[in-house]
Amino acid sequence: MQEEQMVTFSLGSEEFGVDIMKVQEIIRIPPITRVPKAPDFIEGVINLRGNVIPVVNLRVRFGMLPGEETDLSRIIVLQIDNKIFGVRVDGVTEVMRLSSDSIEPPPPIALGLDASFIRGVGKIGDRLLILLELDKIMDGELMNEETA
């Protein structure tokens, strides 16, 4: 049976998962430098061992209320199409395997967030996991910039 390995994290009361192959590392929140005039979901840039990488605030990206930074807050560093960027989450919960059978296509009216970021919904017992497709998470930024 086909299985996928996921890194799961929380934003507010929701639980999300991303493909582990796209996760480069998970770090604590370092000092973040604000980038003026950048799209609002770009929280800023950080120093990742000498490289400057942008950080996306997923709460803002998904239209949720901003949350407090806690001890559990993390940045998941993703590598997608040779681009490296971080997404800020409230907490990383676990790494789990998910059989392909238990993944359902995204519901037509997606949980209040942009459907293009959702790959599907995973069910583990009574838990509901929103599987994210983050390939386009940075794309909106260029569009925003041009229409601004």
Binding site: P30, P31, T33, V35, P36, K37, A38, I42, G44, V45, I46, N47, G50, V52, I53, P54, K83, I84, F85, M138, E141, L142, E145
Partner: peptide, 21 residues
Amino acid sequence: LGDLNGIPGIAGATILGDGKV
């Protein structure tokens, strides 16, 4: 700045002695 290049008024970034961008 990678993906963030092209933001008006910002040419790039650097890392200072304290590690901050």
